[in-house]
Nucleic acid binder design. Structure first.
Length: 455
RNA sequence: UCCCCAGUGGCUCAAUCGGCAGAGCGGGUGACUGUUAAUCACUAGGUUCGCGGUUCAAGUCCGUGCUGGGGAGCCA
């Protein structure tokens, strides 16, 4: 018989004379003459309760069934006479599919620490919390595409492999098909020149914004930084919209609209899973998200931010003056203490920002923007791009970038250039925002961090 | 990479001043005719992260390495 997903069985409007459910046993409770099984198949947070009488055939199966085993149950869906659930399955036939040895199966019925579960990342989606996490992750990805589709954006697949080794100041992963330790000249390597994993699809996305209008990329991104923090991983997913004929203000407005849309979508579509996080992970979660949805994001020019920091009379480890790159302590003060809500900082000094950001009329600042949210820090980083070819070339020269490596990028300004803007939004940080989880390693199926390439 | 903290049974933790390694949960066995992290009884389970040192004696003190966590830096 066709399998009914537990989610659908639990949401059933009426009893079912014949039903088959399959899933993993969360717990088994034996009595004389009958047993209860709690079954979860991942379709939703809740388990379905199965009751089976101890016929000889069923008893033989039950003897080998414990927490973690996968089973199949044929029976009927009936209203449960017990408290705690509406429906239960009265099992007629019970079949063990995959045994789980109780002596060595690492998941128990009790709560485990996140640290322990990280060590068994291959099994943690079988827990309530991580099951909920990865259902939300899936929904958040779907919502991202939905958001863009509803606004007539095109989804662009920018390359993961890149040939420019000066794509950014960040450390990049080298890609090669040569043997380790090979002394062969670079010309003999696969591409005949140094190849790396992408740190951003932005430059390529810009080419498509200047042809398809509104586009976005959504894919994996790599950073070889030796970072050991709860906010950094070597491989993560980034959403990067790029929009033609949009200035910095439009860019910030769009980012705010997007964050609010995604939060709203998850609250509306993953209520049960989110509730788990609000209850067990972060008690302030719902309050935080309500504030985020209700208030307009603060818009604060960098220069004013420096002013606020100077006037705060707060002792910072890193002294504040105009021109510095803001440190974590500064960002936290502004976002969590001063405003306690999402804050856009914009118009940064050109000296601390990359070459492609549009130079403002003051000749000192560029049209950059960062969106900071409490608890997470930077969730969006973006800018209006420099569309004036002569200014762009001057900036590249200033920063000693080899023009020839960017010939195609400069070409987009040579032919039919237009104002355009975009930003990058860290997908995992967005997940941390909606779930209240504080370590990025716990919002990814198999996180990659320095010295960790297990699974 | 730097600073701080931690590592004891499968998991979460305890162990006084350096003096017999323990509990709860989980596992196993049994009891129980509607359980809900079921309950009750019995039971097994230890290289106290590795290496070296101090000491009559080290889970405990010292050195070192590894692992984990937190903070910072790095970070398109």
């Amino acid at each position: 018989m066709k399998r009914t997903k537990i989610k659908n069985a639990l949401n059933s409007e009426h009893p079912m004379a014949e039903v088959t459910v399959k899933g993993w046993v969360r717990t088994k409770r034996d009595s004389k003459g009958f047993s209860f099984l709690e079954l979860n198949d991942g379709s939703c947070l809740k388990n379905i309760q199965v009751i089976v009488d101890h016929t000889p055939e069923i008893e033989a199966e039950l003897a080998r069934i414990g927490t973690g085993a996968s089973v199949s149950v044929d029976g009927e869906l009936v209203e449960s006479p017990g408290k705690g659930q509406k429906w239960e399955v009265r099992g007629k036939a019970l079949k063990l599919i995959g045994e789980a040895d109780q002596e060595t199966f690492p998941l128990q019925k009790k709560r485990h620490t996140d640290e322990f579960l990280r060590g068994i990342a291959h099994l943690r989606p079988r827990t309530n919390k991580y099951g909920a996490m990865f259902r939300i992750r899936s929904e958040l990805a779907q919502a991202t595409h939905k958001f863009f589709a509803e606004r007539d954006f095109f989804y662009v697949h920018t390359p993961v492999l890149t040939g420019s080794d000066c794509e950014g100041a960040g450390e990049m992963f080298r890609v090669t098909s040569l043997e380790h330790g090979s002394k062969a000249p670079i010309e003999e390597d696969f591409f005949g020149k140094p190849a790396h994993l992408t740190v951003s699809g932005q430059l390529e996305a810009e080419m498509f914004a200047l042809s398809l209008g509104d586009v976005y990329t959504f894919g994996p991104t790599f950073r070889a930084e030796n970072s050991n923090t709860p906010r950094h991983v070597a491989e993560f997913w980034m959403i990067e919209p790029e929009m033609a004929f949009v200035d910095l203000e439009g860019n910030m407005g769009f980012g705010e609209e997007m964050i609010k849309y995604l939060v709203r979508h998850i609250l509306d579509n993953c209520a049960e899973d989110v509730e788990l996080f609000a209850k067990w992970v972060n008690k302030q979660l719902m309050t935080e998200l309500e504030i985020l949805l209700k208030k307009d994001f603060v818009r604060l020019p960098y220069t004013e931010a420096i002013d606020i920091l100077l006037k705060s009379k707060k002792e910072f480890e890193f002294p504040v003056e105009w021109g510095i790159d803001l440190q974590t302590e500064h960002e936290r003060f502004l976002c969590e203490e001063k405003f306690n809500q999402p804050v856009y900082l914009y118009d940064y000094p050109k000296t601390i920002k990359p070459f492609y950001m549009r130079l403002n009329d003051d000749d000192k600042t560029v049209a950059a923007m960062d969106c900071l949210v409490p608890r997470i820090g930077e969730i969006i980083g973006g800018s209006q791009r420099e569309e004036r070819m002569n200014v762009l070339l001057a900036r590249m020269k200033e920063m000693e970038l080899p023009e020839e490596d960017y010939w195609w990028y400069v070409d987009s300004r040579r032919f039919g250039s237009a104002p355009h803007s975009g930003f990058g939004l860290g997908f995992e940080r967005m997940l941390m925002l909606v779930t209240g989880v504080s370590n990025i390693r716990d919002v990814m199926p198999f996180p990659r961090t320095p010295k960790h390439l297990e699974f």
